[in-house]
Design a protein around this nucleic acid. Sequence first.
DNA 1: CGTCCGCTTGACTCAGATCAAACTTGGTGG
DNA 2: CCACCAAGTTTGATCTGAGTCAAGCGGACG
Lengths: 195, 195
Amino acid sequence: MIRSHLSKILSHLKSERFCLAKGDSLFHQGDQVVRFYHVRSGKIKLTRNTIEGGQALIYMALAGETLAEASLFFDQYHCSAVADSESEIVAYKKSTLLAHFEQHPAAMKEMLKLFAGQVRDLRAINEIKNIHSAKERILAFIYHAMNEHKELHLDMSLKDVAYKIGLAHETFYRELKKLEQARRLIRKDGYIKLL
Amino acid sequence: MIRSHLSKILSHLKSERFCLAKGDSLFHQGDQVVRFYHVRSGKIKLTRNTIEGGQALIYMALAGETLAEASLFFDQYHCSAVADSESEIVAYKKSTLLAHFEQHPAAMKEMLKLFAGQVRDLRAINEIKNIHSAKERILAFIYHAMNEHKELHLDMSLKDVAYKIGLAHETFYRELKKLEQARRLIRKDGYIKLL
DNA sequence: CGTCCGCTTGACTCAGATCAAACTTGGTGG
DNA sequence: CCACCAAGTTTGATCTGAGTCAAGCGGACG
């Protein structure tokens, strides 16, 4: 899991702070890009209008992550952002940020590193989604996301994890239970420990 | 589809040129990262060793694309690269590239833009893979990847496209045929045109 | 106290994976 | 020029496992 160190990079930059209640909107698809956001706490659901007129979750930005990275270089947001729980957001003006990068290449380099990690991470999830067996898919995800102690701290609901790896949440619960019964892992609180 | 403009960014930088025959290896998972690669022609298959000891395709880098972006900031390659057809590769020393970025922030900014686009693209594919219906998944992919004329130029085999969107190639062929018979699209040569 | 939502389990169904086989196509080499 | 091979494409038949619907539980929160 790639975690942002953005706050370090941009600590002395002028910023705004927003506190959102669940359901509050941050921006809408098609809006002019003015700000770049960093999630301090809570979670922000990014959705996109689908062809059929529905809404599809494209990403769940958790505490410590940034969102709409690509928007920095585009004029309009290509997705909408809504708080999925009470959230605290730090926002930087897009123009301020780009100007800062002009003058501080080191900050830009950190940003580049951050994005590179994102690319790596997304490709891994993409690969995982090609595993058809639910059990193997779950194991692959845990291997991918766990820390060096073979532990996975779940900073989101199991339902969201299920979505993240492309499984129906019922299937996810079931397979997780089976894996636990087969002594492949232990679950407690917000942790999963691989055996 | 995000296409690289890397050659423009790095045109005057010292580089090496490799010509690979199909099957030739560029680097292996675990190798020390020395160079950063840009595909001029052909295609490079990126694979990763799976837990079970197999090989999983994680990305097919086509002409104009870069590969192993994340490796710029890591010591080892996290995947292996093998030419999937006769390919021409331009390589830059990692150290040269990073030094160039130090002195030319504009180049780094272009790179940042490139990565940001990649992130956007990968999230889109991720979203597409969550669509369960094969037919809808295929349509969503075409919508995503087509140009302004509702045409999609396939620079890879249908089999690879099937893999890219996470379908068994048989299913992909079948649904494509159905869509063609239902006059939703036209297929000819390496093109798909939406109606 | 009621509502919401994540979690859990059961039963059923079917769409897509899988196995199998044939046919194109392109390239290689004798 | 043809024989041959490899790989992509196509179609058929079968089957299974994951999606879906449904229903109940429990904790958080106002």
